[in-house]
Design a binder for these strands. Structure first.
Lengths: 222, 222
DNA sequence: CTCGGGGTGATTGTATACAATCCAATCGCG
DNA sequence: CGCGATTGGATTGTATACAATCACCCCGAG
């Protein structure tokens, strides 16, 4: 399937995206080894661009590379979940406050997302659900008009998405998620920053606790 | 400490550190091109490990790589300074709150830093001053007991350090910096999180404004 | 003088090839 | 039988070599 291909734009770029997606969706689980020869063959390239892609992801914090011992998908312990959510709350609160200052109205797109989400939930398509969830929070971040904040949040979300895919194998998504989203979008649109932050706080707490619960139930990995 | 290791440990690792340091200290200024052949020769390696190092730094947000057009040190506009400080305040406030919860006492090391800083100021050694400033804030972050927060703050600090070196060529460091540090450390040690945050807020505002002022004065670059 | 149109040198992108290192299983010795 | 040395295979690290792409300059037509 490595298409005949001279058409490829730039190997490295598509490689980074492909690898990142594979890690985020759990195709390569936290802690698993990333053997260069195998990956190179799987993506149809030599090891040179592949190694560069790994370095890129190392910089993003998705993989850990030990000299002469190779790369592994960065492991995730329960404490990481707590720490990540703590951090994420601070970042996203800032995003909300900045967005509310300008009365950013993203209720429209939120509604669209909800429709798509309902469909995905009916179809039990977890990856799609996660993706739509991410879209909402990414949209929220974007309205902050602070690219550095967007980047930082994107990094945190990557980590969290990894946890979700690692532990949410069964569909057991917190039900009120999309209600929370609407409430937050509504508050932001009215400039009610603190109300939005309050709702976000409970929103994230529930999400975090759901993950931690699943983690303890299915937490049979070392 | 660094094991005896006389011979070269691993090219890539020392390369990344060396390159990062060169960028942070302004040896390669924001916006300047990073030609692979030149850097490879300068560091005495081939282009392969060098390219990997660049990818790593791209992941950290220090360089930007355009396909077939090479890498440049990520440019920094005035708005970046504002955005970075906005973000940094949120992150460091979180660090302070977590540190204050445990009454972390870093007044001892802060005092040591101040002594070293006074010496550096007398010697007009700006890079050393920046470094000691970073040490204080890094120490503060470390007491949060949240590695992800430490990493995020480290990334922000890298960006800010780049701005400092780019615009603070002349020694004009805000005078009250080390008083602020002592006040913050003192408040944290007494568990007075909000007092520490308040002092941090003015501390960062002054630092930011000093940079912006210099930026406007010396801002003759495109 | 301005605007395309090549052509050329400089620079990046990737594959192949080989050296260095690590890991595990085996062997030898007590 | 236990345990450290050793060796072989697997895997990573780097250099050399070459292909692909781009930027710049020069030139000629309008």
């Amino acid at each position: 399937m490595t298409a005949s291909v001279p058409r490829l734009e730039l190997r490295s770029e598509t490689l980074v995206d492909g690898l990142r997606e594979s890690i985020l969706t759990g195709r390569y689980a936290p802690g698993s080894r990333l053997v260069q020869d195998d990956l190179a063959e799987a993506f149809g390239v030599s090891r040179i661009p592949l190694r560069e892609a790994l370095r890129r992801l190392e910089g993003e914090g998705l993989v850990v590379i030990s000299p002469n011992r190779g790369a592994v998908v960065r492991p995730l312990a329960p404490k990481d979940v707590v720490d990540l959510y703590d951090l994420r709350l601070a970042l996203e609160s800032l995003a909300i406050r900045r967005a509310a200052e300008r009365f950013a109205d993203l209720r429209g797109s939120t509604k669209v997302l909800r429709v798509q989400a309902d469909r995905a939930i009916a179809a039990r398509a977890m990856p799609t659900i996660f993706s739509l969830d991410r879209d909402f929070h990414a949209g929220l971040a974007a309205t902050s008009d602070n690219p550095h904040l967007v980047a930082a949040l994107g990094g945190q979300w990557s980590q969290i998405m990894r946890v979700m895919h690692a532990y949410f194998q069964v569909a057991n998504y917190p039900a009120a998620v999309w209600d929370d989203h609407e409430a937050i979008a509504d508050a932001v649109a009215h400039g009610a920053a603190e109300a939005a932050v309050a709702r976000l706080t409970t929103h994230l707490s529930e999400s975090r606790d759901a993950i931690l619960a699943h983690l303890r139930t299915n937490g049979d990995r070392s």
